[in-house]
């Protein structure tokens, strides 16, 4: 009973928050509604007994991803009202609904037709975090390490892309000035090498 009440409450809240994110014309409203929706989604994970996933959802999404977006938005002009294309809104709604129905069919088809055997069945004698750790570090060790390498690559890419030429504004410079800057920097590195 309480499970159902919690489900419907958080489902309503999440749908409202994400609708605000998609529909608003203010970037800051979109960001805050998005962060709220992320926290509400973690409630579903707690209801479903995936405690560790819920904690990770809060830490990674609202802690890291939304903070990153907030810092990134400092670079952009967020006070300006967003102008969106509205060529044919009805077509967009129809296409979105159609794609969603297709997704339901894709998800439901294997469940309805065949019996699925659990590869790693849920063991009620150990807690969720412990069981997750056992499965993750035995059966999924190689994907886990690959994900770690991928995150390292993404971190280095983010630092290189965003941190380069922080003291100069490439927006206010002409193309010739940028080319000149690149030429002088390569010259400097060549001189340093000699």
């Amino acid at each position: 009973m309480f499970e159902a009440v919690a489900f419907y409450l958080f489902a309503t809240l999440t749908i409202i928050m994400f609708t605000i994110t998609v529909m608003t014309s203010q970037a800051l409203y979109a960001l805050t509604a998005m962060a709220a929706g992320m926290i509400f989604i973690s409630a579903f994970f707690f209801i479903l007994g995936a405690d560790f996933l819920g904690a990770i959802q809060i830490i990674v999404y609202t802690g890291a991803v939304m903070a990153l977006y907030a810092f990134g938005m400092m670079f952009f002009d967020t006070t300006r009202t967003l102008v969106e294309k509205r060529s044919n809104p009805r077509l967009v709604v129809v296409l979105g609904g159609l794609a969603a129905v297709l997704v339901v069919l894709i998800v439901l088809a294997p469940i309805v037709t065949t019996n699925i055997n659990a590869h790693y069945p849920i063991d009620p004698s150990v807690g969720n975090s412990q069981a997750i750790g056992m499965v993750l570090f035995t059966k999924y060790l190689v994907p886990f390490e690959l994900a770690a390498v991928m995150l390292l690559v993404a971190m280095i890419a983010g630092i290189v892309l965003a941190g380069k030429k922080m003291d100069k504004s490439l927006t206010l410079m002409a193309d010739e000035e940028i080319a000149l800057m690149h030429a002088s920097s390569t010259q400097n590195t060549e001189e340093g090498a000699h």
């Binding site: 990153l68 977006y69 994900a147 991928m150 995150l151 993404a154 890419a157 290189v160 965003a162």
Partner: peptide, 14 residues
Amino acid sequence: IAIAASEVAVGLGL
């Protein structure tokens, strides 16, 4: 979640 985090890092940098 890991893929989403790295996507945000690279995408925001670009």
